[in-house]
């Protein structure tokens, strides 16, 4: 497992502890006192380290190659998932997956951006960067869900919509824009969860929702810290600073009313205990869907629109002649 430099004290202590366990097993140690002391020390260290991550460290956590991806969550949370391919227009985008599934004995539509783990898989999934056909596939599935009354769940995990000649030729901007419009009025409940990276319009393109959730170690922003650094500082060296300025961590976004809820992760991140992460996401989805299902649909869509109408901060200055 990839270990970040700033995680090394934890890993070193874990290794020492492992040695102590071995010694104890082999009968080289009389009592467990030393082990217990070190366990306590490790727990303390982990807690202080992982609950005080800088924004840039959160970005790193969100990108950890062992973090569960959309298909992992789908496999461990839902039953009877059937992946449906293609946008019925141009192609099947492998960076966007989706299909109907069952959650708690009820039908839902689940859609997500998909990254790959191995070099080959990463290329196959285009690093989780959808092309216009990905957004159109997502919309096709949402409209299918709307026709049959299935709530929509989306998993967001993208470094951004794909930049490229083909993407522009096929209208990347139009594809995202139209999704925003249709999602704002879609006549079924929508819950979105950021499970990793939530970069800009590429994330928002499947993220207009009644309830917008973020896992603890994820980010959501108008631009990636690297690109922000490159544009505003004209250098790649200010990504940590940009991550701070962009206020891209879930706690800040919750405070500003941009997101609705934070899903806590197991200590050290979802990748250190994926089962706990699946359970946390599942519980959040269940609770939110239960509330949303009980609302009349007209009220739900009106509220969704109103939520977006209210977003932003400005001053209202009385202008005098």
């Amino acid at each position: 497992m990839q270990v970040f430099d700033w995680e090394k004290p934890v890993v070193e202590l874990e290794e020492k502890l492992k040695e102590l366990y071995e010694q104890f097993e082999e009968g080289k140690m009389a009592d467990r006192q030393a082990i217990e002391a070190m366990e306590a020390q490790l727990a303390q260290l982990k807690k202080s380290l992982y609950s005080n991550l800088t924004p840039w460290q959160r970005v790193q956590m969100a990108r950890h190659p062992d973090r569960p991806y959309s298909l992992d969550y789908i496999e461990h949370i839902f039953d009877d998932f059937i992946e449906l391919h293609g946008d019925r227009r141009f192609a099947d985008d492998k960076a966007m997956v989706g299909g109907p599934a069952v959650l708690d004995g009820k039908s839902v539509m689940v859609i997500g951006q998909q990254k790959g783990r191995t070099t080959k898989e990463r290329q196959y999934r285009n690093f989780g960067m959808p092309n216009p056909e990905g957004y159109r596939k997502a919309l096709r599935l949402m409209e299918l869900a709307e026709r049959h009354g299935l709530p929509v769940i989306t998993f967001i995990d993208t470094p951004g919509a794909a930049p490229g000649i083909g993407a522009e030729e096929r209208g990347q901007g139009e594809a995202i824009a139209y999704n925003l419009l249709r999602m704002s009025e879609l006549r079924v409940p929508i819950v979105s969860v950021v499970i990793g990276e939530g970069a800009s319009g590429g994330a928002l393109g499947i993220g207009v929702a009644d309830r917008f959730l973020m896992m603890e170690n994820t980010w959501f922003s108008v631009i990636s810290p690297e690109s922000c650094s490159s544009i505003l500082w004209r250098s790649w060296d200010y990504k940590e600073k940009a991550a701070e300025e962009l206020k891209l961590v879930p706690e800040a976004l919750l405070k500003y009313g941009i997101i609705d809820e934070i899903i806590p992760e197991p200590l050290g991140g979802a990748h250190r205990d994926p089962d706990a992460a699946y359970a946390a996401v599942k519980a959040a989805l269940q609770a939110n869907l239960k509330k949303l299902r009980s609302q009349p649909i007209d009220k739900l869509t009106a509220r969704r629109k109103e939520k977006y109408f209210q977003m932003g901060r400005y001053e209202e200055k009385r202008v005098v002649e």
Binding site: V208, E245, L253, K305
Partner: peptide, 23 residues
């Protein structure tokens, strides 16, 4: 494009205007 200095607030204006266009 979006104004970086207002970060997520700028991003959400995309959803805001799209929702208003639905109306």
């Amino acid at each position: 494009g979006a104004r970086m200095q207002e970060s997520a607030f700028s991003l959400m204006q995309m959803a805001k205007t799209a929702a208003a266009l639905s109306e």
